[in-house]
Design a protein around this nucleic acid. Structure first.
Lengths: 118, 118
DNA sequence: CTGGATCCCATCGGATACTG
DNA sequence: CAGTATCCGATGGGATCCAG
């Protein structure tokens, strides 16, 4: 850990690798998806929508994504606490590429499913 | 391992997740990249271009990608053995989406680098 | 309500050595 | 040349409990 990865543990090899490091992991895509559909969600709303995620995974993923500039965290100083999350500009700009990839993935799935038919 | 992941260990949740499962991992992107630039490469050519990859990682990644229909393996029955790899149609169709993502990644890198200026 | 700390385990990536 | 087998350490994901 004494190399140039001191800052963010991301290897800056190429932009593509960089992008994959940012959106990789098990929960980031679902989070992006949920935030994209709902613009703004509170912590527990997010948690309920993602189903299966634990507090630790969610808060960890959110924090990392905030560091990358993907999501915005807005904390209201109230009792009980309220924290709202939403995508940044950069986060939204990512979505089209994701759709493109998803479209490709769908084609791949269809190919798999139609292997047995003439 | 007794669920519906019996076939390919890929969760079919959504096409995007599917896509990420296919191109995820440390070496698949570099391999796709190398094959896209060179159309066709032999095993050792590939290995030399990727630098740092071991036999095990390379052959394993190639086999998985072949299973997914991303690359084609062409073996010539000669002595010494010759095996050539190239991208399938599906593999090539993936590249534009990758470029899109890479472009986004580049923007992100630039933002990072220009934090201290202005 | 919104998290943090700790501990655990599965999986991934890899070094090394060997084979057809 | 083109891989495979084995073994191992690192890493990431997760359960559970705790805290402001």
């Amino acid at each position: 850990m004494n190399r140039e990865e001191t800052e963010s543990k991301v290897k800056n090899d190429c932009p593509l690798t960089y992008a994959f490091n940012i959106i990789g992991g098990k929960w980031r895509l679902p989070i992006i998806w949920a935030l994209w559909q709902n613009k703004t969600l509170r912590y527990n709303e997010l948690k309920r929508r993602i189903h299966g995620i634990t507090n630790m995974m969610l808060s960890q993923a959110l924090k990392e994504m905030e560091d990358y500039g993907l999501v915005v965290r807005k904390q209201y100083m109230e009792i009980p606490p309220r924290v709202e999350y939403s995508l940044t500009e950069a986060g939204m700009e990512l979505v089209p590429s994701l759709h493109s990839l998803a479209k490709w993935g769908k084609q791949m799935q269809n190919k798999r499913n139609s292997i047995g038919e003439a």
